[in-house]
Design a protein around this nucleic acid. Sequence first.
DNA 1: CGTACTGTTCGACGACCATCGTACAGAACT
DNA 2: AGTTCTGTACGATGGTCGTCGAACAGTACG
Lengths: 115, 115
Amino acid sequence: MGIIRYMAPTNAPAAPHLAEPRPADMRVETVLGALSDPVRLSIVRTLAATEGESRSCGSFGLSVSKSTASHHFRVLRDAGVVRQHDEGRHRLTELRRAELDTRFPGLLDSVIAAV
Amino acid sequence: MGIIRYMAPTNAPAAPHLAEPRPADMRVETVLGALSDPVRLSIVRTLAATEGESRSCGSFGLSVSKSTASHHFRVLRDAGVVRQHDEGRHRLTELRRAELDTRFPGLLDSVIAAV
DNA sequence: CGTACTGTTCGACGACCATCGTACAGAACT
DNA sequence: AGTTCTGTACGATGGTCGTCGAACAGTACG
């Protein structure tokens, strides 16, 4: 039942990550749309709360089905908000903080800070 | 065909404005959803470009029908992004800059600045 | 090998959304 | 009064979205 925080072994091979848009291809409307859903916003907030760590999809405690959760992660990844890569039988997710901050300065922080 | 920028006479009576949420009742998801549409984003950007001025609905040069435009203004108003009040036969719209900045600091600026 | 675990894909379904045309309401102007 | 202008309200429609269960694919572990 505990939260899984994945620690990659130091000699791990470079895991291929899934397709994600380049910063230049990211569109504001798409990012805003991705963040406008309560489930996805909670995912992003959870990621921001433990910045730098990769989390497995199941470790977010989402109250939706597996397939729905999978859908939301895809929306976030397609929008460019998160990056994912496979590690064993987990698909680890992390914030694309640097890309987001470069492409849309201040946006992520203001959204996360919003009460 | 020119753009109408409304100049209220200095002795104008206090025009009643339409229902809009109090800052405390504004939700981030709703605001982000309101800003995630291209038409509405262009409205907000136009308003931000001429801050402090009230604009009539028809002065935005939107490429949608009247009824669709009316719908978008309502979404923005319900989300708390803009304020509207009637002035003669015009319904004037202006940004709720102060409320937005207080409730969600930095959000509006980062969205507007986004290229 | 077989079993558990993690997450995706594939329909399907209902709800919501953006869009439109028409009709309507109020204000201003002739 | 009649006309013009500005914008809303009301259906209607086609598309997207969030949700789910069932089936599948890989990985890890017994």
